[in-house]
Design a protein around this nucleic acid. Structure first.
Lengths: 231, 231
DNA sequence: TCAGTTAATTGACTTTTATCAATTTAAAAT
DNA sequence: ATTTTAAATTGATAAAAGTCAATTAACTGA
């Protein structure tokens, strides 16, 4: 490795990350020296629930899903993540275990940063500490919304909500396409695959969405919003 | 107020809090000067979801419930809290709004600390920052368990899990009594009050628990554990 | 291209859970 | 003690959601 001199850039990765804005060149160099970039193909596990949490990643390219492995092989997808975000988990600073599984959905690449370095940065840089607290609390906010979504809405509302989430926060593409497997949609909304299929079909029959295999287009966002709100 | 000189103790409150162990006398004094103790009667709201988050509290005495106000006046209880814990919320460091409601269940008292002081302490003391991150992540861990609990277990499993939670983590009393309203039990397990009542009755009929009004005794913890695990 | 595997679909059926309405009981206030 | 109010209970019913089994379609690797 003769890139020890590279500062504030490695590919398009770390510099663009708001989280790291507060770091000095010297502090940034700490990350730069330990980081280690790896590629993953769709379906490959990046972090496995239950294993030791030794690193966090900054996702560079691709798309990953972050999910809880629950009872009887049922999964609950907490969220999808796109570049450029830090992906760690609540094991950081606590028991240093992975409490979620992170899996590549599209071909992805990520830089690994060991938690020791992350801890050092929190100790060295007050603003980074606050940013990290902010980051964690923002996720807690999302989790709170998800609690209501999953426990107080019927299946139609949950699917509508999930589609809007995917459209607005995961697949921000010009063509508006969402690409997702039925099972993932079920895991995202805590229902059976068959139920997810049936509701997708209903929405398609009502022309609220268009479906072509795993590609979904939202034709009527207003209607979906209403369904999502009604529950 | 002529208690500016009091350091490291105010009642039994702040010194006993592991979170504050890392503070220097000087830093502790910052809290001590701004804190402000208030009593609450059962049913009184301490923080109301939707309002500005200007303070966090350290609970001194009593019992509070922390819940999300969801759809159609339905609440979801996230957790109960006993002394001596900090109660804030994910609005700290983000949008500084309350995203949960905190209500006294028993007569309670709490010291208010403004978020500015809390922020100063994070900036002043690295260990306090790490402790706070740890605290927040521990709650995320609990939330993850709750996701599985609520989305992958049937009503019997949820009630059993809730009773074990109340027994082990909320009412650690020698007599083993749990005191809770049916509605709160329903709000804790995301089901209707009627369903909660029916399951409590079943458990009573099978002698797994004893019930006298709002007082519940766990007669067979092993059995409850099995029910909780089975889902 | 073809076999082999995985994902998606569908219908029938069962189970789970909520809702509604009517009482009954318990708790608080005067 | 008595009125008033809130909480708990019960049964009947409907709605929601899962399961199972059988196909069909789509995708993958020789």
């Amino acid at each position: 490795m003769d890139e020890k001199k590279i500062t504030k850039h490695c590919g398009s990765c770390l510099t663009n990350l708001p989280m790291f804005n507060s770091l000095t060149d010297e502090q940034f160099e700490l990350i730069n020296q330990v980081r280690c970039r790896v590629k993953f193909r769709p379906g490959e596990v990046i972090f496995k629930q239950g294993t030791a949490l030794t690193h966090v990643i900054v996702l560079n390219e691709g798309l990953v899903k972050i999910y809880l492995e629950g009872i009887d092989n049922r999964n609950l997808i907490l969220r999808f993540a796109r570049p450029l975000t830090i992906i760690g988990g609540p094991g950081v600073f606590t028991d240093f275990k992975n409490h979620v599984t992170t899996m590549a959905v599209e071909e992805s690449s990520a830089c690994f940063i060991d938690v020791k370095t992350l801890t050092d940065l929190v100790m060295l840089n007050k603003d980074f500490a606050i940013n990290l607290l902010k980051w964690v609390n923002m996720h807690t906010l999302s989790n709170y919304e998800k609690f209501i979504e999953l426990t107080q809405k019927g299946m139609h509302g949950r699917i509508a909500g999930a589609l809007l989430y995917l459209h607005n926060e995961v697949f921000n593409e010009k063509n508006g396409e969402i690409i997702i497997k039925r099972q993932d949609l079920a895991d995202l909304t805590a229902m059976s695959k068959e139920s997810a299929i049936r509701i997708i079909k209903e929405l398609k029959d009502e022309n609220i969405i268009s479906v072509d295999g795993n590609i979904i287009l939202l034709n009527n966002i207003e209607s979906l919003t209403n369904i999502s709100l009604r529950g």
